[in-house]
C-alpha cells in the first residue's frame, strides 16, 4: 500500500458516500444513470469473488464488502425507494455494446484461463467503460446538479490516483500489470472532458453546463 493507492481508494469511497448522500438528501436519483450503477455492481461482484478464497488484508476485505454492498444499496435506492425519480427514458446507452466486447477481451487477455481470472479481467475492462452510460446521459441533458459533478470528480480521481501508484509499484516492486494499467489509463482518459468542465466551471462556482 502506498499513498497514491490510499488516496485513490479514499476518493472511491468518498464518491460512493457523496452519491448516497445526494440521493438521500434530495430524495431523488435524478441525473444518475441506473445502467452505470448496475455495471458497477457487475464489476464488483465479478472482481471480488476472491473474497471467498483469498485473504489480502482486513482493509482489503472491508473495502470489498463495502463496495459490493453499497453498490447494491444504490440500485435498491434507484429501483425501489426513489423509483419515481429515476427516468429510464434518458438513460439510453446500449450497455450490450460494453458487455460484449469486455467479455471477448477478457477471453483473450487474462493471466490464467480459469473462471475467476477471466472474470477478474472482465471486471477490469468493464470498470474502465462503466461510466459511459452516465457520461452519455450528462451529454444528452447538457447539465448536472453540482453534487452529481462532485460524485463524478471523486470517481474519476480514484483511477487517476492509481496511475502514479502503478508507476511507484514498478519502481519499488518491479511489477507491471498490463491489463490493469491499460484499462486504468483508458478509464481515466474518459473523464478528461468532464474534468475540464468541472475545473473551469464547477470549481469556479458556476453550474455544470455543457455548451449547446
Amino acid at each position: 500500500m502506498n499513498l497514491f493507492r490510499l488516496f485513490g481508494d479514499m476518493s472511491h469511497l468518498a464518491s460512493i458516500l457523496i452519491l448516497v448522500h445526494k440521493i438521500q438528501t434530495t430524495r431523488s436519483c435524478r441525473g444518475i444513470s441506473f445502467k452505470t450503477q448496475a455495471l458497477y455492481v457487475t464489476v464488483f461482484v465479478s472482481r471480488y469473488l476472491d473474497l471467498f478464497y483469498d485473504w489480502v488484508s482486513l482493509y482489503n476485505f472491508f473495502m470489498k464488502v463495502f463496495f459490493i454492498s453499497s453498490s447494491c444499496y444504490i440500485l435498491y435506492l434507484m429501483k425501489m425507494k426513489f423509483r419515481p425519480t429515476n427516468d429510464p427514458s434518458i438513460d439510453t446507452f446500449r450497455i450490450e455494446y460494453l458487455l460484449g466486447p469486455c467479455a471477448i477481451l477478457a477471453l483473450i487477455f487474462h493471466y490464467k484461463f480459469t473462471v475467476t481470472e477471466v472474470l477478474w479481467s472482465f471486471s477490469i475492462f468493464l470498470e474502465s467503460v462503466a461510466i459511459l452510460p452516465q457520461l452519455f446521459m450528462l451529454q444528452r441533458t447538457g447539465e448536472a446538479e453540482t453534487i452529481t459533478t462532485h460524485y463524478l470528480a471523486a470517481l474519476g480521481a480514484y483511477r487517476a490516483f492509481y496511475i502514479p501508484n502503478w508507476i511507484y509499484r514498478y519502481w519499488t516492486e518491479d511489477i507491471v500489470d498490463p491489463i490493469a494499467v491499460t484499462s486504468g489509463i483508458v478509464q481515466t482518459a474518459l473523464y478528461l472532458d468532464f474534468f475540464y468542465v468541472y475545473f473551469t466551471k464547477v470549481l469556479q462556482g458556476q453550474k455544470f453546463e455543457l455548451p449547446a
Binding site: V56, D174, D177
Partner: peptide
Amino acid sequence: TGSGSVHDEL
C-alpha cells in the same frame, strides 16, 4: 521486469 497481476488492489 516482472509481469504480474495486481490482485491485492481494489
